[in-house]
Design a binder for these strands. Structure first.
Length: 305
DNA sequence: AAGACGAAAGTGGTTGA
DNA sequence: TCAACAACTTTCGTCTT
């Protein structure tokens, strides 16, 4: 326990963020959830008999949007209660149950399927539980408002996941979502825009800095290079080079320059591949960076060494 | 031969009349 | 609803290492 510094057991990164709301520690590089349940969910009372149990128990399983009914479903009873009813009431009872069944099954069946798909994609991308939960919430809202109609369930799931990632500042690219879900990139983008607009979700433009750690570790760049890239990026933001540009392109260019300056040269192609953009875009951003930030001199100095 | 560079044409989305 | 527009991509030829 030297220094009590936590490392990610998956990728040995020390780039961890703490999500206090959910008691999770999340690796920024690979998305692994390291610690869950730092909060005690245990009950603080004791049951001695069934009478006390029915009085003291006021909780069920934790509420979760990952269950199709949030774990709070109400069924019209099936137990012995019905035999206490008269025949008239008994008919009413059966009618109610039939109706409940009809109303709920359509949505529920959809949700069950969709949430299974959502779990699959989320675990493929190694997304933390908090994002999974958020996207399940988004999807549920979308279904309730009938936004899924005319769209494939899978594409809405992907859109919800993409939105949740953005909100939690651990953005994935549309390409990654596309690969994980098997849905066309454009389709995901379309549904993403549609559901966020319809649900009135306010989502900030994703910050290029959020992409740096993941790209850097994919390229096996040193922590020094990585922090330098972040530094470059911050200066680029001050110089207003970032607005209106694709965040991945800027992140990739910063990394490329930082790698050059630290003698860890990567080809433009390598960087472009992990960032999911083209060399041309890297070049354009890279040229802007050199021009506006006076990095030229520092690069030249490196050359002479 | 591979990588870097840049020009030109094409794509999909946004914006403003 | 349409056209102009900016960002990004694809493709391809040329230059550099």
């Amino acid at each position: 326990m030297a220094g009590n510094i936590k490392k990610c057991p998956e990728c040995a990164s020390i780039n961890l963020i703490l999500n206090k709301d959910r008691g999770e520690m999340i690796c920024r590089d690979c998305g692994l959830v390291i610690e869950e349940r730092m909060i005690d969910f245990g009950q603080e009372w004791t049951e001695f008999d069934s009478d006390q149990a029915s009085k003291r128990r006021r909780t069920g399983a934790p509420m979760s949007y990952q269950k199709f009914d949030r774990g709070l479903g109400t069924d019209i009873g099936q137990k012995a209660d019905i035999y206490q009813l008269g025949s008239k009431d008994r008919n009413k009872f059966f009618r109610l149950r039939k109706w409940q069944y009809r109303i709920s099954t359509a949505i529920e069946r959809n949700l069950k399927l969709a949430l299974a798909e959502l779990k699959r994609v989320a675990s493929f991308l190694k997304l933390p539980k908090s994002v999974e939960e958020e996207s399940a919430r988004v999807y549920t809202m979308a279904v309730q408002r009938g936004l899924v109609r005319g769209r494939s369930m899978e594409s809405v799931v992907a859109g919800a996941l993409y939105a949740a990632c953005r909100r939690h500042e651990i953005p994935r690219t549309l390409d990654e979502l596309s690969e994980a879900s098997g849905i066309d990139k454009k389709e995901i983008g379309r549904t993403y825009r549609f559901i966020t607009r319809e649900l009135g979700m306010r989502i900030l433009p994703s910050n290029p800095v959020d992409f740096i750690p993941r790209f850097a570790s994919n390229l096996r760049l040193s922590p020094e290079t990585q922090s330098q890239a972040v530094h470059i990026l911050e200066k680029a933001q001050d110089a207003e080079l970032t607005s209106g540009r694709g965040p991945t392109g800027i992140a990739a260019a910063s990394l490329y320059v930082a790698a050059l300056m630290n003698n860890e040269k990567r080809t433009q192609r390598e960087v472009a591949d992990v960032a999911g953009i083209t060399e041309v875009t890297i070049r354009n951003r890279y040229k802007e960076l050199l021009k506006k930030l006076n990095l030229k001199d520092r690069l030249k100095k490196k050359e002479k060494e």
